[in-house]
Amino acid sequence: MSGGLRVSVEKDTGVAVVTLDRPGRLNAIDLAMAAELAEVWQAFRFDDSVRAVVLTGAGERAFCTGIDRDAVVPQPPSPYMVDDPLLRVGPKANDLWKPVVAAVRGMACGGAFYLLGESEFVVADETAAFFDPHTAYGMVSAYESVLMAQRMPFGEVARMMLMGTAERISARRAYEIGLVSELVAPGEALAAATRCAAVIAGHPPEGVQGTVRALWAAKEAARAHAFAQAPHLVALGNLPARQQAELFAGRRRTGGFRVR
């Protein structure tokens, strides 16, 4: 596939592995990859050989670092209409109710939370680090905050979003607060996530998919209400693109890890 995705399906186990494959760009999502992700999730809806999915990133440095800074996304001249290409990159946004397990190695930040937020659970290795740079660059963390507020204690997600690039949540801390369900040695996240996916794929799919749908039904009302406010908050709170670029160009190295 062009655009930066690798997709493999193991017919015997029923597990598909979707790999964000732009390691030179820290697996940042450009517009081509965003479109491909939507196509992949929609295709899986019709493929009975896929009963569970593992989502991971190529290379050792990052799972995903969100939207590619070079992506040009034209915006309507209205605070009531905001185009966000990441809104369609997740499985649930594409009406896929097959279980997705995320395998995280290295950085997961910013727009990566669209993907982690729509996965059933996260397996991470000890190199994983989580942070959200939006506020440091004069941007509103809206959708990311909503999704993570459904995965983490409120105080933890508030601190991560508001601290911006000043600190990262370590893999150990992410495990302790419940963002990560299993913590493994460096380089072992994909294998561990695949083992989980293979077990799930071995169960009757109707029961599995019904359970996934039930789990997400418990969160949908709150998420939909919060998402409805997000475009206005982004339009009102984001600095102009030029000022964002200036802050990004002058960025310092992200702060240290918070392990407690």
Rank of each mutant, 00 (worst) to 15 (best):
residue 185 A to K: 12
residue 27 N to P: 02
residue 17 V to E: 11
residue 195 R to K: 15
residue 89 V to E: 03
residue 12 D to V: 01
residue 228 A to M: 07
residue 257 F to S: 04
residue 35 A to G: 15
residue 220 E to M: 10
residue 164 G to Q: 13
residue 243 Q to R: 10
residue 62 A to H: 07
residue 130 F to R: 07
residue 194 T to A: 13
residue 164 G to V: 10
residue 227 F to Y: 15
residue 7 V to Q: 00
residue 106 G to Q: 08
residue 120 E to A: 00
residue 189 A to K: 04
residue 80 Y to E: 13
residue 70 D to S: 14
residue 196 C to G: 01
residue 69 R to M: 04
residue 215 L to M: 07
residue 93 A to N: 00
residue 7 V to E: 02
residue 51 R to A: 04
residue 149 A to P: 00
residue 224 A to F: 01
residue 138 G to D: 07
residue 227 F to R: 13
residue 135 T to M: 13
residue 33 M to S: 12
residue 234 V to N: 06
residue 174 A to Q: 03
residue 229 Q to K: 06
residue 52 A to P: 06
residue 242 R to A: 15
residue 231 P to N: 13
residue 51 R to P: 06
residue 244 Q to K: 12
residue 241 A to W: 02
residue 205 P to N: 02
residue 38 A to K: 12
residue 9 V to R: 05
residue 157 V to W: 03
residue 49 S to C: 02
residue 68 D to G: 01
residue 260 R to F: 08
residue 125 D to R: 10
residue 147 L to V: 05
residue 203 H to R: 11
residue 61 R to Q: 15
residue 45 R to T: 09
residue 183 L to A: 08
residue 184 V to K: 09
residue 160 M to Q: 12
residue 162 L to K: 11
residue 252 R to A: 07
residue 204 P to A: 02
residue 122 V to E: 07
residue 39 E to I: 04
residue 55 L to R: 09
residue 48 D to K: 12
residue 108 A to C: 11
residue 26 L to W: 08
residue 30 D to I: 06
residue 230 A to F: 06
residue 212 V to W: 00
residue 25 R to E: 12
residue 249 A to H: 12
residue 99 P to N: 08
residue 182 E to G: 01
residue 62 A to K: 06
residue 13 T to I: 09
residue 111 G to S: 06
residue 92 K to F: 03
residue 143 Y to T: 14
residue 142 A to L: 08
residue 167 E to T: 14
residue 70 D to G: 08
residue 17 V to M: 07
residue 132 D to C: 15
residue 226 A to S: 14
residue 117 G to M: 01
residue 39 E to L: 11
residue 222 A to G: 15
residue 191 A to H: 08
residue 43 A to F: 02
residue 178 G to S: 13
residue 22 R to D: 00
residue 22 R to Q: 13
residue 92 K to T: 13
residue 231 P to L: 05
residue 150 Q to C: 10
residue 100 V to C: 04
residue 231 P to T: 11
residue 104 V to K: 10
residue 27 N to F: 08
residue 182 E to H: 13
residue 32 A to R: 12
residue 193 A to T: 04
residue 140 V to Q: 13
residue 108 A to Q: 05
residue 241 A to D: 05
residue 249 A to G: 12
residue 164 G to W: 03
residue 123 V to D: 14
residue 72 V to N: 09
residue 18 V to E: 05
residue 146 V to A: 10
residue 247 L to I: 09
residue 187 G to Y: 06
residue 159 R to C: 03
residue 254 T to D: 14
residue 67 I to P: 00
residue 219 K to A: 14
residue 150 Q to Y: 12
residue 164 G to A: 03
residue 109 C to M: 15
residue 152 M to Y: 02
residue 92 K to H: 05
residue 62 A to V: 06
residue 99 P to S: 07
residue 41 W to A: 06
residue 85 P to N: 08
residue 207 G to P: 01
residue 166 A to R: 15
residue 61 R to S: 14
residue 232 H to Y: 11
residue 122 V to R: 11
residue 254 T to N: 11
residue 209 Q to V: 00
residue 252 R to E: 14
residue 232 H to R: 14
residue 154 F to M: 09
residue 105 R to W: 02
residue 171 A to R: 08
residue 178 G to F: 01
residue 101 V to L: 13
residue 155 G to I: 04
residue 259 V to F: 07
residue 150 Q to E: 15
residue 158 A to C: 04
residue 87 L to F: 08
residue 58 A to R: 11
residue 193 A to R: 11
residue 93 A to W: 04
residue 244 Q to Y: 07
